[in-house]
Nucleic acid binder design. Structure first.
Length: 582
RNA sequence: GCACCCGUAGCUCAGCUGGAUAGAGCGUCAGUUUGCGGUACUGAAGGUCGUAGGUUCAAAUCCUGCCGGGUGUACCA
């Protein structure tokens, strides 16, 4: 995979980078590619990296790779490339050195670096230019509690959506969840038992703030009864069917219907309150009931065409020939399972948005499940399957590790995470209800780690104002703004840099590269890591360099402003507020 | 059993489009500092990158075996 690849352009004698629109890195790559082509008649896409600052601003190992092809001495090849590159870029590149086994290190001129600094906060590589993207994530089920995983996946999905949007996509954020299905039957069963029968008027006795907890308790009781009591199990299966019937007959009036619709709404209210609180709003919520019919019809149609097979009274897709496994799409009661509903959802999302790309973000326990669903869809709608990508992440665990069991109901809930963070924050700072810092802390802790493996959430570490944390970066930003408030607003053109300014300037210009990488790989943690490194470099600069009142004040203020703008922009992309004062 | 994921300092993690001495944070120890928000900065100690092979001029990074952990594997979502 080529991250920053562009084909080499037509030959021209000399390039003036600062007058060209392309991002700097790609310009250098193009020139490098051309030089290599002219010198050795080899076409390749050079990769530029950011080396240790002692070596230069950019580095490439092309000579080492070339040495293999050409059977030459890597250092000799590097020298030839370096010389040619220097010739073609005389005004923009200060130095091209050969070092070590054959690395080519590039050091920019200060004037080119200055131009890049000015562009860094606003230049967004358009990785998804013009694409219409539907991003689906969070996916909580009505009638059930929001757990830590929903929190995590909401934060991840929101950040990824922002990253794609910054990279040029129009992103529609949607949510999906089971308002029909066995868990609803289980919850309804226990709720009816609690109410003493189908008495919707008794729902009024439940105070608003206890609604979610009451439904959660019912789900736990229903699940236990389903497993332990055969009579209850049969009743729950009947209730499950009865819920589907509500939709078929458009029943909003019967007592049973009344209870169902009221409690479903309670769930949605509870979800929306949570999303509002953590700042991850959705454009649309797809209830399973809305896509179940479409999924069911589609699977039935494709059953007739041989995509699906009947087996023991159920309709299945046999994945074995694709290296997958067999899954049930319609069960032997004729009810569509999650699989069929997901088929319906993919189709409905396309009807609604005509997306170029559909992104689904879930925990990685869904990985092989989703592979089967997408393989099934590929058989009759290959264009939908190929436009869909499933991204997965790990589980959230609380440091110290609480044993989790959904049957006993002692799962880690979303609110537990929030409460633990608030408690740790109060301990650390003495502040209560510091929601902005607490949310920054949690989100940063969730996103600073690479997506994939499980995540161990440590509340104390996350709220700490020292170290690699959200509050540290929020504070770093507020501190930079404070400096700017003290100085006259005059903006200045940059010309040259002293050593510590230059370190900061070089790091600043890395921002667009980081955004490109985060977007291409769909990995928000690159942004977090970068922002932290940037803040560290800034603090080193700031330790020795006086800003306000110094002869170099104009240059330094411009750097401080650029730095603050990047912090704010980067934190915003991962969904974290960056207040000017704390 | 089969499939997928993971195994890097005491802890939590970067690094894995193969390349220059394997990096952070926390913790530990030792320092700096009458300054623009010191919630900072400097330094030290700490790693056979699970293990055994293979490919390569070059492997934490790619391939294979093994060990250890996790997840999934037909009528839940």
């Amino acid at each position: 995979m080529q991250l920053y690849g562009l084909p080499p352009g037509p030959c021209s004698s000399k390039k003036h980078y600062s007058s060209v629109q392309l991002p700097l890195m790609e310009q250098i790559q193009q020139t490098l590619a051309r030089v290599i082509h002219d010198l050795f008649d080899v076409d390749m896409q050079p990769v530029l990296t950011r080396p240790d600052p002692q070596f230069g601003d950019y580095a490439t190992n092309v000579a080492l790779q070339l040495a293999g092809h050409l059977k030459g001495n890597p250092r000799d090849i590097a020298s030839q490339v370096a010389e040619a590159l220097k010739e073609q870029t005389a005004e923009d590149i200060k130095d091209v050195d050969v070092a070590g086994p054959g690395f080519i290190n590039i050091t920019l001129s200060d004037s080119l670096l200055a131009a890049q600094v000015h562009e860094a906060p606003t230049h967004k590589p358009q990785t998804y230019a013009g694409q219409k993207v539907v991003a689906e994530y969070s996916d909580p089920n009505p009638f059930k509690v929001l757990h830590a995983g929903h929190f995590y996946t909401s934060v991840v999905g929101y950040a990824l959506s922002n990253i794609m949007a910054a990279a040029g996509a129009t992103v529609h954020r949607v949510n999906f969840g089971g308002d029909v299905g066995l868990h609803v039957g289980k919850t309804m069963w226990a709720m009816l038992r609690d109410l003493g029968g189908e008495y919707p008027e008794k729902l009024a006795d439940i105070p608003e703030h206890e609604r979610a907890a009451w439904m959660t308790k019912a789900y736990i009781a229903g699940t236990a009864a389903y497993e332990e009591d055969e009579t209850a199990k049969a009743e729950i299966i009947t209730l499950n069917k009865q819920v589907y019937t509500l939709f078929e007959t458009n029943d909003h009036d019967s007592p049973f219907a009344h209870i169902y619709w009221t409690c479903r709404q309670w769930s949605y209210d509870y979800f929306n309150a949570f999303y509002e609180r953590i700042g991850t709003p959705f454009e649309k919520y797809y209830p399973e009931s809305e896509v179940a019919g479409l999924g069911l019809r589609t699977v039935r149609e494709q059953l007739a065409k041989g995509v699906f097979k009947e087996s023991d009274g159920a309709v299945v897709f046999e994945g074995e020939s694709y290296g997958l496994h067999t899954r049930v799409f319609i069960n032997s009661h004729g009810i569509p399972t999650y699989e069929a509903k997901d088929v319906g959802l993919i189709m409905r999302k396309h009807e609604d948005y005509h997306f170029d790309r559909s992104v689904i973000i879930t925990g990685n326990e869904q990985e092989q499940y989703m592979a089967v669903v997408l393989k099934a869809v590929e058989q009759f709608a290959p264009e939908l399957a190929s436009a869909t990508t499933h991204f997965t992440h790990g589980l959230v665990k609380l440091k110290g590790g609480v044993k989790m069991s959904s049957r006993k109901g002692n799962i880690l809930r979303a609110l537990d995470v929030l409460n633990a963070a608030h408690a740790a924050n109060k301990q650390a700072t003495g502040r209560e209800d510091d929601e902005q810092a607490v949310l920054g802390a949690i989100k940063y802790a969730f996103l600073k780690q690479r997506l994939g493996p499980d995540l161990i959430y440590d509340p104390e570490e996350s709220v700490s104002l020292e170290g690699n944390s959200g509050p540290y970066l929020q504070y770093a930003h507020a501190r930079a703004r404070s400096i700017l408030r003290k100085a006259p607003a005059a903006a200045s053109e940059l010309h040259d840099f002293d050593a510590s300014e230059r370190m900061l300037a070089v790091k600043v210009t890395e921002y667009p590269d980081v955004l490109a990488r985060a977007a291409t790989e769909m990995m928000p943690h690159y942004i977090c890591t970068y922002l932290y490194e940037l803040a560290q470099i800034f603090n080193r600069f700031y330790e020795n360099a006086k800003v306000v009142g110094d002869p170099r004040e104009a240059t330094r203020l411009t750097l401080v402003r650029t730095y603050a703008d990047i912090l704010k922009d980067g934190l915003g992309l991962v969904g974290i507020a960056a207040p000017d004062k704390m």
